[in-house]
Design a protein around this nucleic acid. Structure first.
Lengths: 160, 160
DNA sequence: GAGGGAGAGCGAAGAATATTCCGTTGCCGA
DNA sequence: TCGGCAACGGAATATTCTTCGCTCTCCCTC
């Protein structure tokens, strides 16, 4: 059951909206906002976690304050020969901590990754010593992020 | 003081690492992991929040379970005439709830946005009725995400 | 070398919260 | 109408949060 949004009622949606915006809110305050008792609210949150609607909670850190001055979007084209090794290459790629996101995409290139490093030199080192040496990399195209205008994980949920 | 990672000690870094992975962990358990008392741990977390190292906490939701079957990366080139209107256009762009991320990037296009919608039809509607009508849009290039191989917000922090 | 102030930590205690348990209610379907 | 089920609320207990005061250490100054 991939898409089971229909099994969620308005209260569930409200809970998800609140937790998307403040994942560390206390259960009593959450229960206030959704007009339920704390036990009923907690049971719903546990169910949403259990059923996989909530995959986890994360503290959002300030990249620049932590010394990550460089963000890059790198498109990657793979050679399709020996395609049985592609899975291995992708495993190694997503295991790299600098790689925050990796997407298989349509278009001229095959994959798009988002890479966060401390500076341009670290990005160069990442590309030259870790990315390029991967077997089967045909070519890459790097876009440097000059400015982050928006960055959120909050999905656009239907109105409650 | 943009980059003040040097003012963080190993315990701070450990706290950030733990909270990145589990933003809803109790302060008692967090204090266990960092080998400090709960009050001392709480004081550090409050300081990290206060000084902006932690910008917030968020529940990570399962896009597909919530009916978002479509993810797209859209490159946007702007017309540079009447550049005083660019800020307004960007404001309107980032205000759209379907737009999860927006970056000013180097390369052939000027901006890259990440858009999450329920399906291809909703994406088409977004592009046709909300994106294209923005003034000053020169051209766009859309890449559909076929598969998400990695998606994390966990920065690669220095070893404690 | 002695005094003293700042910073950070700890333990205890009261307040707040989380969690469990159980009784009640409302809503089907037999 | 009568169970049976699902969901909720209230009460009670367990756990956690948060404050407070004390101690220790590290410097800095005298």
């Amino acid at each position: 059951m991939l898409n089971s949004v229909s099994s969620l009622d308005r209260t569930d949606i409200t809970i998800l909206r609140v937790l998307q915006a403040d994942g560390r809110i206390s259960n009593v305050e959450l229960s206030d906002r959704v007009h339920l008792s704390p036990p009923a609210t907690l049971a719903r949150v546990r169910r949403l976690e259990q059923e996989g609607y909530i995959s986890g909670y994360a503290a959002m850190l300030n990249r620049e304050k932590l010394g990550h001055d460089n963000l890059a979007l790198i498109e990657i084209a793979l050679e399709l020969h020996q395609h049985e090794r592609i899975a291995e290459v992708l495993d190694r790629l997503v295991a790299m901590p600098e790689v925050l996101e990796c997407y298989h995409v349509t278009g001229e290139y095959d994959y798009m990754i988002k890479v966060s490093t401390v500076n341009n030199r670290a990005l160069d080192r990442f590309i030259a010593t870790r990315l390029i040496p991967l077997p089967g990399i045909a070519r890459i195209h790097t876009s440097i992020v000059l400015k982050v205008l928006k960055q959120t994980t909050q999905l656009d949920l239907p109105e409650p």
